[in-house]
Amino acid sequence: MAISLSAHRSQLVLAALVVAHLLAISWQVETDQHVPVLEHLVLTVVAPFQRLLASSGRGLGAAYHRYVDLRGAREESLRLAGRVRELEFALEQREHLAQQAARLRELLALRALLPLETITAEFVASEGMPWAGKVTVSKGSADGVTLNMPVISPSGVVGRVIALGPHAAKVQLILDRDSGVGVLVERSRTIGVLEGLSDDSDAGDLPMLFVPALADVKVGDTVVTSGLDQIYPKGLTVGVVSRVPPATGLVKDVFVTPSARFHQMEEVLLVRVPPESLDTPEGVR
C-alpha cells in the first residue's frame, strides 16, 4: 500500500491540487444566475440526494405520523369509549334520580292528601323472587315503626309490617300467600277478603273471598280497603276486578289485579295512625 501510494504520489498531489484550485476558483466565479460556481455545483450535485432524502424523510415522516395518529386514534378511541361508559353511567344515575324524584313526588302528593302520619321508607331487600311475599324496608322501631303498620304506595296498598328491627322492618305484601286484606268493591260496596297469591291466581291476580254469589261485581270494578280488618285504613285502592268466574255455590270467587306496582316499587309510606279512626278521603282513592 505504501509502495503504491509512493508510486502514485505525483498523481495524488496533482489530483489534490487540481481539486483545491477548482474549489478555490469555483468559490469566486459566478454563474449566469450570479451564483458562485461552487455553490451551483454543490446544488447540482447535492440537490438530487437532498430531494431523495427529503422525499424519503417525508415518506418516513408521513408513515411515522400515520403511526402516531393511529396510536393516537386508538388511545382516543379507548378514552372516548371510557368516556361513553362514564356518561352512560351518569345518564343512568340521572334517569334513576329522575324516576326517584317522580316517585317521591307521588309519595309527597299522597302524604299531602292523607290525613295520616306516615313514615317514608325504602325497599332494601326482598326475599328471593321479585314477586316474593315479603320485603324489608329501611325504617324500624327506632323510627317509630310498629307491628301491623299498613304500608302503602301512591298506586295502592302494599302490605303490612310483620316484624321489626331497630332500623328495618319486614313487610308482608298483599301478594303473600298468608296475607289477608279486608276489601270492598267500591261501586257496589260488596265486601270480601283479599287473599295472597293462590294456585288459582292467574297472571298475578289475587282471589277476593267470601263474595256472595248474587253480589254485583263486574270486571273493572275498583276494589278498596274496607277497614274491617283493623289494619288498613278504609278506602285505599287495592286493585281492579280482573275476573269474575261463575258462582258454584253461595259465594263466588272474584279475582283482583293489585294496583300497586310491586316490581317497580322502591319507596313506600308506612301509616302511623291506627286505622279504625280513619276514613280515607276521596282524593286518595
Binding site: S10, L17, V18, H21
Partner: peptide, 30 residues
Amino acid sequence: GETAGMLMGAAAAWAQDLAFGGPVLGLLGL
C-alpha cells in the same frame, strides 16, 4: 520532479496572483 514542481508552481502562481492581481485567484495556479 513533477511533485515538487506542482507545489512550487501552485505556490508561485498564488503569490503572483496575490501580488499582481490575477482576475480570479487560483486560475493561474491551476
